[in-house]
Amino acid sequence: MSLGDEHDGQTRTRLPDPAPGSGRPPARSSRSLIAVVGVVVLLVAAIALANRGDGTSDSPSTGAGPDASTRSTAPTSPTGVRPVPGKNGQIPTGFARDEQGAQSAAANYAVALGSVDMFQRGPRETIVRAIHDPAVADGLVRSLDDSYSAGFLANVGLNPDGTAPAGLTFVSRTIPVGTKVKDNSGDTATVEVWCTGLVGLAGEGSTKPVTTTWFTITEQLKWVGDDWKVVSSEQAEGPTPVNGDNRASMADDIAKAVEGYGGFTYAR
């Protein structure tokens, strides 16, 4: 997608204060949670890390060519045209040095920060170092290791290593709804990402059912090397729509949906 002049950086198509049992650490200011860089941990955000297709081409495509139709994908991998040329592990990279690229980066970084992988030490460090400015990454890794303590993980319903108990599926997905550029000076950008999220344990016998949340993440981005990187981020509640009348699905149905429906790579 392209950023036309008619959009002027407006929202196009990143939580509220945690409710009891929502899975986040006790409410505190974002600066105290990660004092080194003031980044708010998206512990209750959702959407699995934006998986990439297994195709061999890393070049963006302009249409559904042979690569799109023949690419081998896992059941939960996104399919279709790649909006950016590369990836760092499973995180998209190579965003354009403009407003469109900043919005794409912010949306994908929100997804990564709200993923299940953030609840396990090794994968969490990989995500943090992949999307943050190296100048703040070391301090953030240490701070997050403290935040994701064994006690916190137990309150979420997880094992001490961040995995789900046998027979249950841990769900943590962040779904960007729209993005908006608040400031862009070429080498730095401030982007708001409006999100909804899923978090909880799915499966028979779960005492922490999957719930939905709405929040906006404001990311301070900096152009580092050849890509946008996060310097700090904050979150705020809403905007939250009125709940619909949909009947809640059984826990097993939610678990099957999470395992069967893959995430996306987001781009402008």
Rank of each mutant, 00 (worst) to 15 (best):
A105L: 00
S30T: 07
A164H: 02
N88G: 02
A255H: 00
D133I: 04
P75L: 08
A45Q: 11
D252L: 10
I217G: 14
R82P: 05
G89Y: 01
P75F: 05
Y266A: 12
R97P: 04
A164N: 06
T240Q: 13
S32D: 14
D187V: 02
N184Q: 03
P78Q: 12
A112E: 09
T179H: 01
G225D: 11
T265E: 12
E125H: 11
A64Y: 13
G139K: 02
A110R: 12
S104F: 01
I217E: 15
M250F: 09
D253E: 14
G186C: 00
G21P: 06
T174I: 05
F264W: 08
R142G: 09
S147G: 03
Y148L: 15
A236C: 07
A112C: 12
P16Q: 11
R268G: 09
D183T: 06
L15G: 09
T207C: 04
L153K: 08
A130C: 06
V128K: 08
A46W: 01
R28P: 00
R124T: 08
L153S: 02
S115P: 06
T212P: 04
L33K: 02
R24E: 08
G114H: 01
Y261A: 08
T216P: 00
V141T: 11
R97N: 11
G89H: 02
P92C: 04
S61N: 07
G205L: 05
K208R: 15
P60D: 07
R142Y: 06
A202M: 01
Q10L: 07
G122M: 10
A64V: 11
N51I: 04
V116A: 14
P25R: 12
E6A: 12
T126K: 15
D226K: 06
T213M: 01
K222C: 00
P66F: 13
S59E: 13
E204N: 15
V81H: 07
Y261G: 01
T169N: 04
T126N: 14
A189Y: 01
G23M: 02
I47F: 07
S149A: 10
A189N: 04
G53S: 12
P92I: 03
P66V: 15
